[in-house]
Nucleic acid binder design. Structure first.
Lengths: 195, 195
DNA sequence: ACCTGAACACCGTTCAAGT
DNA sequence: ACCTGAACACCGTTCAAGT
């Protein structure tokens, strides 16, 4: 049934792919949101098993988050949904459980891990949505930003001018790896929420 | 011109509000994306000035990021755009400059600040998009999640079961404040990117 | 020359009407 | 009883035709 979704995943597209009319899907799903949620959960099935069983917890956690990000990255429409709704379903739950387990292994308290989980999942999801818009547009925006930075009036924007090209340095992969390190360092350093 | 946008901000809606046909906006904007970008930049105008001029850099930075988040929070359609495109325009630039300045004040290296800027802006943007879907849906999703956590099979999901209610604890404001602390602690702790 | 809105190609969702 | 697709209410974008 819900096998392919690399392009835009819409009700009508799936309906016509199934040789039926729109509205027929509403027997199986309540909503477009629900449709996306069900697809995401099936896409997530192989993720928890793919994480290495040995090695430092931190490396395993980063591998898990990268895999999660990769899934969303290839399905931007689904990523958009994952951002607005807490993913539910057995496989999403398995991913969450694995993350909590690895954080516990790293000595993170349950309270911090509970809130950290959301933060850790939010990053790859947001990145996937960010890259969702066509790549050409992204490159164009980058070029525009580069031009703006280069031209930035040092009097009005002293810090932008000083930092300069560093703002544009690095590709997606190295930035993601760095971001996971920031998040994990932050989670290890932060004090427990006083909820 | 572009004054109100608390609901859904669409080409057609603005066009009819301006007593003209759709397509007429294309004289002023290239795209829906461009429209949103221009609106965001005007919304951001008062933000940099609103940050307190005295006090610890960290508190001022958190105040700035909160203000940025508040703007996006009241305009979810715009937030969606801000997630997919690097905000451009003079006021976005001023916000970026202020953040870089505060990080420098905190002793963060330019290299780290450059990458940290993106990460710091990503969080409030993603949260704004997340809250974009109608509040009732969010509450429903929460209830569903609560049910799932409560019912979680401790054999299959041992960590979810153990952490339990902590996953659902805290409101948006306290979670956001905590997340900013994680990000800042992480940025202060992380090693410089080896770009 | 410049603005415009009809037209095109899409959406999600509902619900009367068929099987 | 159950599935369906015509119909409704929206979108963004283009471009021929008017001013």
């Amino acid at each position: 049934m819900r096998e392919e979704g690399l392009g835009k995943v819409t009700m009508r597209r799936i309906a016509t792919a199934l040789d039926t009319g729109p509205g027929s899907l509403y027997v199986y799903v309540r909503d477009t949101e629900d449709l996306h949620a069900q697809i995401l959960d099936t896409l997530l099935a192989p993720v928890p098993a793919g994480v290495p069983k040995t090695g430092p917890w931190r490396d395993r956690l980063k591998a898990l988050l990268s895999d999660y990000g990769r899934v969303l990255h290839t399905h931007p429409t689904i990523a958009r949904m994952a951002l607005s709704t807490q993913p539910s379903g057995p496989n999403s739950m398995a991913v969450a459980d694995a993350i909590l387990g690895l954080l516990a292994e790293g000595g993170v308290s349950d309270q911090v891990a509970a809130w950290g989980l959301d933060l850790l999942l939010l990053y790859p999801t947001a990145i996937a949505v960010e890259h969702g818009s066509s790549t050409s547009l992204k490159a164009e925006g980058m070029a525009e930003l580069a031009a703006q930075v280069a031209v930035a009036d040092p009097a009005r924007y002293p810090n932008v001018a000083r930092v300069g090209d560093a703002l544009l340095s690095g590709d997606g992969a190295s930035r993601s790896a760095w971001a996971f390190d920031v998040l994990l360092d932050g989670i290890l350093a932060v004090r427990s929420p006083s909820a």
